[in-house]
Every structure is written in C-alpha cells, then in structure tokens.
Simulated assay, not measured.
Amino acid sequence: MLERTSLKDRTEVTFVLPTDTPPGPVSVVGDFNDWQPGAHTLTPRKDGMRAVTVTLPAKSEHAFRYLAAGDYWFDEESADGHDGLNSRVRA
C-alpha cells in the first residue's frame, strides 16, 4: 500500500506492508535510491504494519520494487502502474 503526503515542492510517499508478509526484513529499492538494498528498510508501526517514508520531488514518477530476505523481489500490487518488472509511483 502507498500513502502520500503532498507538500509544497515534494511528496512524502510511505510504502506500507503487513508486519509478517513476507517474513524478515524488507526494503524498498528504486531509482530514487540508486537501487540500493537496505537504504530504505521498512520498520514496524503501531497499527501492525511496517513502513518507510521516502521524500520525492513533486510531480515526478519513479520505478521501485521491494526486496525481502532470501533475495526475494516483489512488486506493489496497488502501485500507480507497472513497467515490466518494476512498480511505478507518482509523487
């Protein structure tokens, strides 16, 4: 799930997943962090989910995927779009 907060010249995009699906650590990797695993690791929230927030320039679009333990890559089903292997998010 994606949550957005629009600010003057940027958008805070929060990437949200259930705490245990998939199990183990998960990070969001994309063109906004040079596809670096671990740069944006999801952490537990009080609502039973885990999340990480990334600040992106307003009116931009980015490719991303999730990376879980065991080199398990997966997409965001509720993304703004998909292009081949990647999910897309509009800020």
Rank of each mutant, 00 (worst) to 15 (best):
M1V: 01
M1W: 01
L2S: 03
E3N: 13
E3I: 03
E3H: 11
R4K: 15
R4G: 04
T5Q: 15
T5F: 09
L7T: 12
D9S: 15
R10T: 08
E12V: 15
V13F: 13
T14D: 05
T14I: 05
F15Y: 15
F15S: 12
V16C: 07
L17T: 07
L17M: 05
L17R: 14
T19D: 14
T19S: 14
T19R: 15
T21Q: 14
T21M: 10
T21S: 15
T21C: 02
P23V: 13
P25W: 11
S27Y: 07
V29S: 05
G30A: 06
D31L: 07
D31N: 15
N33L: 04
N33C: 01
N33T: 03
N33M: 04
D34R: 06
D34G: 08
W35G: 00
W35F: 03
Q36P: 00
P37E: 10
G38D: 10
G38M: 07
G38L: 04
A39P: 00
A39L: 05
A39W: 05
H40G: 01
H40L: 10
H40A: 08
T41G: 03
L42F: 13
L42V: 03
T43L: 15
T43I: 09
P44I: 04
P44D: 14
P44R: 03
R45P: 00
K46F: 11
D47E: 08
D47A: 13
D47P: 13
G48Q: 02
M49C: 00
R50M: 11
R50L: 12
V52Y: 03
V52H: 08
V52C: 11
T53E: 12
T53H: 12
T53F: 13
V54H: 03
T55S: 15
T55R: 09
P57M: 13
A58D: 15
K59S: 15
K59L: 14
S60L: 10
E61S: 04
E61W: 02
E61V: 06
H62Y: 08
F64W: 00
Y66E: 05
L67Y: 07
A68C: 12
A68K: 11
A68R: 05
D71H: 08
D71C: 00
D71R: 09
D71M: 05
W73R: 07
W73D: 03
W73G: 01
F74I: 02
F74K: 02
F74G: 03
D75L: 07
E76C: 06
E76N: 07
E77K: 06
E77L: 10
E77Q: 12
S78W: 08
D80E: 09
G81H: 01
G81I: 06
G81F: 02
H82D: 03
H82F: 09
H82E: 04
G84A: 11
G84S: 11
L85C: 00
L85G: 12
N86D: 14
N86L: 08
S87C: 11
R88K: 13
R88N: 06
R88P: 00
A91K: 07
A91I: 04
A91H: 12
A91D: 08
